[in-house]
Design a protein around this nucleic acid. Structure first.
Lengths: 340, 340
DNA sequence: CTGAAAGCGCTTACAG
DNA sequence: CTGAAAGCGCTTACAG
């Protein structure tokens, strides 16, 4: 029943030449007669030959596989970055192995062991939320596996990174709210051991300082920034005797939670309270009012991460020097933060 | 600079036994003394040995890789199915190679060639929108590569499939709209060469018939069902002298478009017009009014697809018989189709 | 321009 | 319970 797979050998036999000749012909080796190449390609076609990538990988030491680690594949931002990465590396002949850490360090470690065993040619990763030790990523470096971080990166780790300028995104967003006349701007913040959340908080503070608005600790609420956290944060803020007139959220999901509570309490957005999110998830434009958000150009981030990886692989062991790319965020202003 | 990778051989030498013994010990072969196993495992740990999965794959003929083909990784429904698939197969020791067809037949064919070259142990796929010929999928069957279709499937192809009962989902959704008092229910339909859209249309018709509501062709609009198509479809419907009082959309994206046009024309949803979507994308619950939708339990679909694949791989060449699983959809009723 | 040969790192019948 | 040996299907220096 099971058809035997056609191999290089079969082509060689059929043409009465050696496997090496076939191999060279197929890979379009420069000094190989066009005649042989044509004959080999024709025969390969005829026999429906499919090169065995596994064998090639073993011999050449290149698996043409790139591991991608995200916390969860179904978070819109990550799914877009994944899309971008796959598009880019695929054009260069690489395939993507997709893995999910669920923000668990244990899983992150397991994944890296698996990827190492699979001999991927490189790893592109966004850190898990709880990842504060990096021994497993050090292992990749030790084994000389190219590594690129995106979005949730480790500072000064000696690898290429791509992130959005979170500081600037936050600074601009809060600046915009101040321009709209807001004076008491709350911030739903992420955990501060993550660079990106730290930077957004810094941008928030800097924007206030620029306008001589005093920083008030009671207006900062830290959480995981899921929708539910947004709801809870908003409820907490509503209990203050002096309510905020705007809320800058470090995540669109949290922003939706805030909007929901606002609706449930008949608080008019944007008139009584403005809302600003982060990431520009597609759904922010579907809502009414649409939620203003900081666009992170997620697909471009994916493309960039892919390109950094390809460059890294190419220069491996030669003149590699990491590049740290910071994408410029842009504000997408919608009805939640502006009276049109 | 480049550290040499530790191999089976190194462990064997260090312990003065043969590589075969090491291999068996590591794979916990039944007749191998516990002593040897312990020694081998200890030494493997010590030398920081990482088995070369590529070599194992070449020798054993099992790559432990499963190819997944989706039109686009950043469509919420697909990203959730991907998540489900990865979770399930990962537990069984398989990794996922993620690929995107962009609804292009050419890319679908290229992908299958690549996956064949990578010698994946199986392929899980959702068809591209335009895929009407299946030669490339036939190739997988010829090569005895297990194949599972999900959501966008081919009927009677002799492989396992998992889909949601689209007919029932549509039937129930339209039935619900009729219960709410709607009499002129339009349908934004997908292209009819896709089984799933055909079935939704059938369900729509059957529900009307059940309530003796005449079917009217002018109320059916066929499109790709993107957001923009929803907007256009709605505009077209508004031109009718007798406007519909409800719109059943075969996609949530189209439903958002419909809602947007309704808002822009000050049409009250649900009072003047009800809206029903399909897929229960998370954003449908973020909107105001929330859009009622047919839940497809996308993550469960992913788990199921993964399990079908694992079963298929296990029974390969023995007593394989395909299974066609139809998941039960459930209606998620929100404000867009009910006055609470 | 083409060939002979070695080897990538495993696994797996086969012996004993 | 352990060992010797072959081989998965390629690629790649090395010769000529």
């Amino acid at each position: 029943m099971k058809k035997k797979k056609i191999t290089l050998q079969d082509i060689a036999k059929a043409l009465n030449i050696t496997p090496s000749a076939v191999s060279k012909a197929l890979s379009d080796h420069p000094r190989m007669s066009q005649n042989t190449k044509d004959a080999v390609n024709k025969m390969a076609e005829e026999l429906n030959y499919k090169p065995n990538q596994i064998a090639a990988a073993l011999r050449s030491g290149q698996s043409k596989l790139i591991g991608v680690i995200v916390p969860a594949a179904n978070i819109s931002f990550f799914s877009s970055v994944i899309r971008g990465i796959e598009e880019t590396v695929n054009k260069a002949g690489y395939s993507v192995i997709l893995t999910q850490s669920d923000d668990s360090i244990k899983k992150e470690e397991d994944i890296i062991n698996t990827l190492l065993a699979t001999r991927v040619d490189g790893v592109i990763a966004a850190l898990g939320l709880k990842t504060k030790k990096f021994g497993h990523f050090e292992k990749l470096k030790e084994e000389n596996v190219p590594l690129v971080f995106f979005d949730r990166i480790i500072k000064d780790f000696g690898v290429s990174t791509v992130e959005v300028d979170d500081y600037k995104g936050a600074f601009d967003a809060v600046g915009h709210l101040i321009e709209q006349g807001c004076k008491r701007i709350a911030h739903l913040a992420g955990h501060s051991h993550m660079e990106l959340y730290k930077n957004r908080l810094k941008g928030y503070k800097a924007a206030l300082r620029d306008s001589s608005i005093p920083f008030q600790k009671e207006l900062i609420i830290q959480s995981d920034l899921h929708l539910e956290d947004g709801r809870n944060g908003m409820l907490q803020l509503l209990e203050l005797k002096d309510r905020p007139d705007a809320i800058f959220c470090s995540s669109d999901y949290a922003a939706v939670g805030v909007l929901q509570i606002a609706r449930e309490n008949n608080i008019n957005v944007p008139k009584e309270m403005m809302i600003f999110g982060f990431s520009n998830e597609p759904f922010t434009s579907y809502l009414d009012p649409g939620i203003s958000s900081v666009d992170q150009s997620s697909i471009i981030m994916g493309h960039t991460a892919g390109e950094l990886m390809l460059a890294d692989i190419k220069s491996s062991n030669t003149d590699f020097s990491e590049r740290n790319i910071v994408l410029n965020p842009s504000l997408i202003i919608r009805k939640s933060s502006k009276i049109f």
